[in-house]
Amino acid sequence: MSITDEALLGGVALGQPDAIEEFISRYERRVYGAALAIVRDRSLAQEVAQDAFLRVWRHADTYDPRRRSVNTWLMRITHNLCVDALRVRRPLAVDPATLLDLTDGEHDPARDMHALAPVRAALRTLPPEQARTVLLAAMYGYNAQMISELDHIPLGTAKTRIRLGLEKLRLSLNESHADEELR
């Protein structure tokens, strides 16, 4: 029986060395992988990953299980740090093809297949320009103004694509959830 993520984080908050070691082992691949996928630079991704864990050590006691799972909380922290790191380095050359592959990297099939397939499937159901816009905003923290400049489209179009894209994503994720519950 392995300890739950929440209990583990409780141990981290108390500074228990075993809990901290287990937390690193459990999450280092995910944190580094997410950072690498977003910033696409090995040394920057390492810095981000280190900062993310540092932030966990500092804020483990503020984690609220009612708001998010530990995994999601940690991905949020990592993502915020990536966006901060990229903000310093802009302009970033963003290749749309790379962006759409973003969620297709190496996964641990046994663990990830089930959980992640719906997200990738949902992304594929979006018109490519909406998928791209949503990913630019959700992954890179680009706002509508920046997307409009980057892709040479009117501001209103950028805002609409963010809204429609995320709306479709939300609906198809809800459906795949509903499917699961029916099974």
Binding site: R30, T72, M75, H79, T103, E106, H107, V119, R170, L173
Partner: peptide, 17 residues
């Protein structure tokens, strides 16, 4: 919408450290 965005982040790949 936040949950949909969370799902995207959680879908990011792992990588060897």
């Amino acid at each position: 919408y936040v949950r949909a965005a969370d799902a995207l982040l959680v879908s990011l790949p792992q990588a060897d450290v």
